[in-house]
């Protein structure tokens, strides 16, 4: 078998591309081997890095050392609730939440450690939608009402959602809320710049897509008094998020599930 110079060059080029792609997968995605197997059997519809890396992959870094939520700070939560017309029903059954606090050991359930630093044992961790790179909610949604934008934000079309709540079953982070009843009478003062929702649809944090589209940061990032939240482009090596992740040890929630959550916690 003879291979022409041209073919050979092509092959070399393709191999190089393939190696780069695989490297990208292994750096970027959670369970690499599973993904490579999936890729091999052609089930790679939601593989990170199988297509050329997009220019922007938004991500959030939460510096838990700076967050003072255990001291009662709820600035990010309050600002979010107000900006997004989130109702307050005064009970937990119908509750809607976009950002909230969870004890460290509940937010990182698989990181059980009784002898952890007291500082973290008592820590309250702000949790929100992880806008996963492999979002299971997007995969299961039967109407594509929930979808991933090119910059990585996971969105919900409140006009298309049929309220089947399959996404709520699929989300490993409990990030999604359902409008069990009409939320409008329970919104303290309505922000006219943001839509209210109707009963029967699912909602969640969308990393303030309405602000991101205007070149702004999510409102929680802006109002954080300790500058504990940092938002930026993960695919830009010079971005602040990348610098923080380079210089600090970070963890993510349930990375072992292969969802590739894009919120990084500095501990």
């Amino acid at each position: 078998m003879s291979i022409s110079r041209r073919t050979l060059l092509k092959l070399v080029g393709l191999t190089a591309l393939g190696v780069t792609a695989e490297k990208y997968v292994s750096v970027h995605a959670g369970s690499t081997s599973a993904k490579l197997v999936a890729k091999a059997i052609g089930a790679g519809k939601r593989l990170a890095g199988t297509k050329p890396a997009q220019k922007v992959r938004l991500a959030m870094v939460v510096d838990l050392r700076k967050c003072v939520s255990e001291q009662g700070c709820t600035k990010c939560i309050d600002a979010c609730n107000k900006a997004h017309n989130i109702p307050d029903f005064g009970e937990s059954k119908d509750e809607i939440k976009w950002i909230w606090k969870e004890p460290y050991q509940d937010a990182f359930l698989d990181q059980e450690n009784f002898y952890m630093k007291d500082e973290f044992k008592n820590k309250k961790v702000p949790v929100f939608c992880n806008s996963c790179d492999n979002p299971p909610c997007v995969e299961v949604c039967p109407t594509q009402a929930t979808f991933k934008r090119d910059d990585g934000i996971v969105m919900i079309d409140w006009h298309r959602c049929i309220g089947c709540r399959y996404c709520m079953a699929a989300c490993p982070y409990g990030s999604r809320s359902f409008n069990w009843r009409d939320p409008r009478p329970f919104i303290k003062d309505i922000n006219p710049d943001f839509p209210t929702r109707m009963k029967g649809v699912v909602e969640k944090c969308t990393w303030c897509d309405e602000r991101v589209s205007q070149g702004l940061s999510p409102i929680c990032v802006d109002v954080c008094p300790g500058k504990a939240l940092v938002f930026g482009n993960l695919n830009d090596p010079g971005s602040e998020v990348r610098q923080l992740l380079k210089d600090n040890f970070s963890i993510r929630r349930k990375p072992g599930l292969g969802t590739s959550p894009e919120i990084y916690y500095l501990v």
Partner: peptide, 23 residues
């Protein structure tokens, strides 16, 4: 009866989504 927005049922057909098992 489990749907939050039953009148949107036909969205299942209008936006067929093979990666959803519900489809």
């Amino acid at each position: 009866v489990d749907l939050g927005q039953p009148f949107r049922l036909l969205n299942l057909m209008l936006y067929p989504t093979p990666h959803s098992l519900l489809f």
